[in-house]
Amino acid sequence: MSAPRPEHPSGWVLGHVAGAPVVLARSWVLAAVVLTLVFAPSVQSWTGGGGLLPYVVALVFVVLLFASVLVHELAHGLVARARGQQPRAFVLTLWGGHTTFGGAASSPATSALVAVAGPVANLVLAGAFLLVADHAVADGTLLQTVLRAGALANGFVGLFNLVPGLPLDGGRILEAAVWAATRDRHRGTVVAGWAGRVVAVGVVLAVLVRPLLAGTRPDLVTVAWAALIGAFLWAGASGAVRAGRSGRAVDALSLQTVGRPAVVVGAQASLAQARATAAAAHAAEVVVLAPDGRPAAYVDTDAAARVPAELAGTTNVVAVCTPLPVGAVVDGALTGDALLRALSTASAHSPVVAALVEGRVVALVRTSDVVAALRG
């Protein structure tokens, strides 16, 4: 599975491929131990032996399985790089693995090709393992059993990842198809996210309903695994739905949607003059300029409201102002993600930011208004 995630995941760096680190997350150790303990009884039944041998063979199979996951992720990254999308890291984790990218795919075709590359790599590995097991290894040997198990695991991972629902790769393909059909990336994400929720519920229901239809009781271990997988899929699908909705809100960001029109006055102006200037321009905010023309402060509307009208003419506007630190400005011509990034940088200096267009202050942007717009 692939998604934009933190660029510097924690763990052990095993090497670099396509300019990106291959990271073994610390949670992988837990997964390796648990899976080894789970597979060991099956290995013991295959071999009929005891002692450490079943655990050694089970561990070899687990390592082989995670190597297949790594091939899956490398396929994502290499195809992405060929399409102009740079991978940031290949990460093996408790849940398998993921590939992080510096940004989203530039087109539906790129998104679909990157997504399908991983499952195809697994299916190719499944065929290779099966070919070796049937034609290059003696029948009935332990090695043949391990290779056939590897083929089965890769075949399952490849086919399951093609199921059309996020966070699976098939969901990314569905997202790309809806994106291409509607020219709306975020609609594709929401649709694929809802499909992923259906898949998550379907996994659990399949494990519960099939035994009941056959007149047997569901196996508790199988139900537990299905519940874990279903919860993982549900969380990923729900995250995708939220991401699609927030992505649409980000695209809609502009000075018109989050800015409050402002006028400017000098530091020597009275509060009455500031009020009159704002009223004449039908503006909600007043910004006070420093002698060098930089936005230095803004009128605190609550403080200004407490000044009686008869005193407004003799009250200096600076008396009811809040300073604007250097850097608390943003280019008002920006929109969408570019505006959000600029606001994120500027808001580190102040929760209220002055928006400039061609060097002139035209509005104030408050962090609370941006948050409300994104939530809305």
Score class of each variant (00 low, 15 high):
A283V: 09
V307N: 07
F101N: 00
V124I: 15
D139W: 11
Q268E: 14
F90Y: 13
P308D: 12
H8L: 11
R26T: 10
A3F: 15
V69R: 04
G266L: 10
L255P: 04
A279I: 09
I173Y: 01
V287I: 06
V13P: 06
R183W: 12
V326D: 15
H76R: 08
V71K: 02
F101Y: 12
A276D: 15
L65K: 01
A40I: 06
F232M: 03
V353A: 07
P295W: 08
V371A: 15
L271M: 08
G215M: 03
L212A: 15
Q268M: 14
A126M: 10
V132Q: 02
L311K: 15
T367M: 13
F160M: 03
A75I: 01
A192H: 05
L24M: 11
G15V: 07
G118T: 00
V22N: 01
L147C: 07
F156H: 10
A252L: 13
V365K: 06
V320S: 07
V132N: 08
R341F: 04
R185H: 11
L113I: 06
A117Y: 02
A25Y: 00
A121W: 05
A149V: 12
A112P: 03
G97Q: 04
L24C: 00
V264E: 12
A153L: 13
G188C: 04
R306A: 14
A82V: 09
L220P: 03
A303F: 07
A283W: 09
D302R: 13
G247I: 01
R366D: 12
V370H: 00
D134H: 13
Q85P: 04
H8T: 15
W225V: 10
R242N: 09
L152N: 12
A133Y: 02
G96D: 00
H135E: 13
S45M: 15
D251L: 11
A290I: 06
E285P: 07
T277D: 14
P9S: 05
G259R: 05
R360I: 00
G336H: 08
R375L: 14
G239D: 06
D302S: 12
P4T: 14
V263T: 07
A278Y: 09
F129W: 11
V29N: 02
T322K: 13
L339I: 08
A214N: 13
L213W: 15
V17E: 04
V198T: 10
A243W: 01
R341W: 08
W28F: 09
V157H: 03
H349M: 10
H135C: 09
F232P: 05
V91M: 05
P164L: 09
A80C: 04
A80T: 04
A180E: 05
L166K: 00
A82N: 08
R5T: 11
A297P: 01
T36S: 00
V250Q: 04
L64F: 12
V250A: 02
E358F: 00
V120P: 03
V13R: 14
V146F: 04
H98M: 07
F66A: 06
G150K: 06
L166D: 06
A355W: 03
L205T: 10
S111M: 09
V370P: 05
F156M: 14
V114H: 03
L143Q: 12
A231T: 11
R185G: 00
G19R: 07
W95P: 01
R172Y: 05
V124S: 04
G158W: 00
G193E: 02
L168Q: 01
P21V: 13
P291W: 10
A342Y: 09
D219R: 11
A214F: 07
G266V: 06
A283Y: 08
P351F: 08
T301H: 14
H8N: 14
R183T: 11
